[in-house]
């Protein structure tokens, strides 16, 4: 095994043997199942809460509502969970002294950082992929004939945003404590949000913020530039994380 595969195998084993295996996959599964149910019974829930006089304003629920729940959950909840589970990836090892024992062996710090990125990305991709599959299955039960395409596109585009945030949070984790890393992740997310207010920003990585909702509702949108620039920024942030960690004293 190479140093990279050894570190990656260790990081994946860490995910399986610690709390990380429960948080994102469990939360994703719960949200994936509950989203279409909420969409299907939203009218009934609204009526039971005393809003029956407004029922006429609500249209009949469709698969679009179910997918909208999923994309809202991705944007409003799972985005933050991704930042939180990434935050201690490097800083936790530095704090616990495991980084010192590992990095005094013939392994580069760049390899260490990249292995962390790949392991975290794998956890997110598998969890969100599973969540999307569950969302589709659950939606198909309540809204037969729901297309898979919009859901897949929306999830894939959000996946690119997740990779970007993992890289940003890893950069924070390579330099600061876990709290600082969360700050960097949230800061990049807020920065993207601010940039998205500018004209022509939809072609930048900030375009990734609004695309999942748009694509999930079945609308078409140009995803190429946000995805390409998003992946470019991810590589840049990851390279910066590696450089910063190489310069850090342990």
């Amino acid at each position: 095994m190479t140093a990279f595969t050894t570190l990656l195998a260790k990081d994946l084993r860490q995910i399986v043997r610690t709390w990380r295996i429960w948080v994102l996959p469990t939360l994703t599964a719960l949200l994936a199942i509950s989203g279409p149910i909420t969409a299907r019974y939203a009218r009934e829930l609204f009526a039971s809460l005393g809003g029956s006089e407004f029922l006429g304003l609500l249209s009949d629920p469709t698969w679009v509502d179910a997918y909208a729940q999923w994309t809202k959950n991705l944007a409003q909840l799972l985005t933050f969970v991704v930042i939180i589970i990434t935050a201690s990836a490097i800083s936790g090892e530095v704090r616990d002294g495991t980084a010192v024992l590992t990095l005094t062996k013939p392994v580069s710090r760049t390899t260490f950082v990249v292995a962390k990125f790949v392991a975290t990305a794998a956890l997110v991709i598998v969890s969100i992929g599973g969540g999307a599959a569950l969302t589709y299955a659950s939606t198909a039960v309540f809204f037969p004939g729901a297309p898979a395409g919009p859901l897949i596109q929306a999830t894939l585009v959000w996946g690119v945003l997740a990779l970007l945030l993992i890289a940003a949070t890893l950069l924070g984790s390579a330099v600061f404590s876990s709290g600082g890393a969360i700050g960097v992740g949230l800061g990049v997310l807020a920065g993207l949000g601010l940039i998205s207010l500018l004209p022509a920003a939809s072609n930048s990585p900030s375009g990734l913020l609004g695309l999942p909702g748009l694509l999930g509702s079945g609308q078409s949108a140009d995803v190429v530039w946000p995805v390409v620039t998003g992946l470019g920024l991810t590589v840049f942030l990851l390279a910066t994380a590696a450089i910063a960690f190489n310069r850090r004293e342990l």
């Binding site: 140093a3 050894t6 260790k10 005094t104």
Partner: peptide, 29 residues
């Protein structure tokens, strides 16, 4: 060619001792 033991060695608590040695050995190739 170096072996190192810090004053307070930090190990992953979810590994066993043989697993840690396997991990360390693999890092040395």
């Amino acid at each position: 060619q170096i072996g190192f033991l810090p004053d307070v060695p930090g190990f992953h608590p979810w590994l066993t001792a043989p697993e840690w040695l396997q991990f360390a050995g693999r890092l040395f190739g």
